[in-house]
């Protein structure tokens, strides 16, 4: 049994130029270089990407779903942030 466990890394892949990097999954690797090499083998065997980011999972700070109410609900009653909130005469086209 190994003394030290390889840490977990999150893998982000840009599938083609013009698109953002998207979370593809995770893997274990001893260091960043190995994480990149493994990500290439695990997640891009069929030309799924042109660029890979890896970040150690422990470096990610995530919001807690228990706080979803206070975090995201305030946006629900702010309809004035959407264009359909505003009444315009039909004659105004393309706005």
């Amino acid at each position: 049994m190994s003394k030290n466990n390889w840490p977990l890394w999150e893998v982000f892949v840009r599938s083609k130029n013009g698109l953002e990097h998207r979370h593809f999954g995770s893997l274990h690797a001893a260091d960043a270089e190995m994480a990149l090499e493994n990500a290439r083998d695990v997640y891009t065997r069929r030309s799924e990407g042109v660029s890979i980011w890896v970040v150690e999972s422990s470096n990610i700070t995530a919001s807690n779903p228990e706080n979803n109410g206070e975090l995201f609900e305030p946006a629900a009653d702010k309809v004035y942030r959407h264009p359909t909130f505003y009444d315009l005469p039909d004659e105004v086209k393309h706005m």
């Binding site: 190994s2 030290n4 001893a30 260091d31």
Partner: peptide
């Protein structure tokens, strides 16, 4: 696995 970890450290 151990060698890779030792090298990374």
């Amino acid at each position: 696995r151990d060698a890779a970890m030792a090298y990374a450290d």
